[in-house]
């Protein structure tokens, strides 16, 4: 008699567990791989930037073409560019990145990434035509 009483009180769980597992599977399947993004900050040429500043800032010019890079007029590989940028390690250094219109976004990001790695934050992007 007592046993029967206990049985009646039990909540029917099996169907709920079924639904919970279905939900769990749904979430696992729809879960998107979280792509982590980096945001590389750059400065655009301002109309007033042509004026000569009193304290002459240190400048470095990097030119970016479609898959090619050049530093002070000589063509360099990405590895050479990296060692050169790393040799500066001066946060005040202004890097002027001249990008050809035929270059790809990946080429620009490669250079911006190297600058970020070298601790250079003053990055100006101008367009080569």
């Amino acid at each position: 008699m007592r046993k029967k009483y206990d049985d009646k009180l039990a909540v029917p769980m099996s169907s709920m567990i079924d639904v919970v597992f279905l939900l769990l599977i749904y979430f696992i399947i729809t879960q998107k791989e979280e792509i982590s993004e980096a945001h590389l900050a750059i400065n655009l040429p301002t109309p007033g930037s042509a004026k000569a500043s009193e304290s002459k800032p240190q400048l470095l010019e990097v030119e970016v073409y479609d898959g090619q890079y050049s530093l002070r007029g000589t063509s360099v590989s990405l590895a050479t560019l990296e060692t050169t940028l790393n040799s500066f390690r001066d946060p005040d250094l202004t890097v002027i990145i001249k990008v050809s219109i035929s270059a790809k976004a990946q080429d620009l990001v490669n250079v911006l990434d190297l600058c970020q790695g070298a601790g250079l934050t003053k990055l100006n992007v101008v367009t080569l035509r």
């Binding site: 792509i35 982590s36 993004e37 980096a38 945001h39 590389l40 900050a41 750059i42 400065n43 655009l44 040429p45 301002t46 976004a105 620009l108 990001v109 911006l112 990434d113 992007v125 367009t127």
Partner: peptide, 18 residues
């Protein structure tokens, strides 16, 4: 970028995948 600069926004960010 030109349009952004014309409006007066000179600081932009470029997204990249890590």
């Amino acid at each position: 970028m030109q349009r952004a600069a014309r409006v007066g926004l000179y600081r932009v960010r470029i997204a990249a995948m890590v």
